[in-house]
């Protein structure tokens, strides 16, 4: 019996003919990829937000330019550039040290880096907004109370920034999750790629793309529920509402 004649439940199931396990593993990889790129984006985004507010003009301008470029260029182009450009770049760096070309970096690394670089530009905006939301008088009051920079950051700035930043960060996360599908073009077996492979080898594209949609919907709605939970916890903790 060819795979084209198998009923949908057998194809999507966890049996020997089923793609269920592969699809679920793909969803797990999508989640891991999104988490990795979100983390990269958070670290770089925080640095960019700090650089934007820096007194060194060139640093602030550099961070602004980064944001304009990354938010004005398609994400797909960034993924493609890293995917095709990384081996050459790595060979060039290795060449500087007189080492042989190391070949292509792992797809997970280039993928999460590409999505993370884009995510950083958006997260920088979010963090900047959060920093601006802390009243200046409070920082001055903390200074007057003799708090050091670390204590000031931990007790006064951070809790308020977190409170302001969580809802828009949830939005960025949703975009991250969906942008991670672009990494499929590098061949990484995340959910989008897996559904393409399954659609191709069984010749049932409608079925497998629909299954992938259901899994993506599960990921996006589950994570938005998690964010809502954290936000509720956060506003309770901040003593508001």
């Amino acid at each position: 019996m060819s795979e084209q004649d198998l009923p949908a439940f057998a194809l999507l199931g966890f049996g020997t003919d089923g793609w269920g396990r592969v699809l679920v593993l793909g969803a797990v990889l999508t989640l891991a990829l999104s988490l990795a790129s979100m983390t990269i984006g958070s670290v770089l985004g925080a640095l960019l937000a700090w650089a934007r507010g820096s007194r060194r003009g060139w640093l602030a301008r550099l961070a602004t330019a980064y944001g304009v470029i990354m938010r004005g260029v398609p994400e797909l182009l960034v993924v493609l550039l890293l995917y095709f450009g990384a081996p050459g770049l790595m060979a060039a760096v290795a060449g500087l040290f007189g080492l042989p070309a190391p070949g292509s970096p792992p797809a997970f690394l280039t993928g999460s880096l590409a999505i993370g670089l884009v995510s950083a530009a958006y997260q920088a905006e979010v963090f900047r907004g959060g920093l601006l939301a802390v009243p200046k008088g409070q920082v001055e009051a903390a200074l007057a109370a003799g708090m050091g920079p670390w204590l000031r950051f931990r007790r006064i700035v951070l809790p308020q920034v977190l409170h302001h930043v969580l809802p828009p960060l949830g939005n960025v996360w949703q975009f991250n999750l969906k942008d991670s599908a672009l990494v499929a073009i590098t061949g990484l077996a995340e959910l989008m790629r897996v559904s393409l492979v399954a659609a191709g080898s069984t010749r049932r594209p409608f079925l497998f793309f629909a299954a992938a949609m259901v899994l993506y919907l599960a990921l996006t709605s589950l994570s938005s529920a998690v964010f809502r939970r954290i936000e509720a916890r956060g506003s309770q903790w901040a003593g508001r509402r």
């Binding site: 672009l182 409608f206 793309f209 919907l217």
Partner: peptide
Amino acid sequence: IFLFRGTPLLLQIFMVYYGLAAL
């Protein structure tokens, strides 16, 4: 709104181009 905001555009494009064509 739930369906189209919750899934990647890339997947939607493939669904329309390859998925619907198989029906």
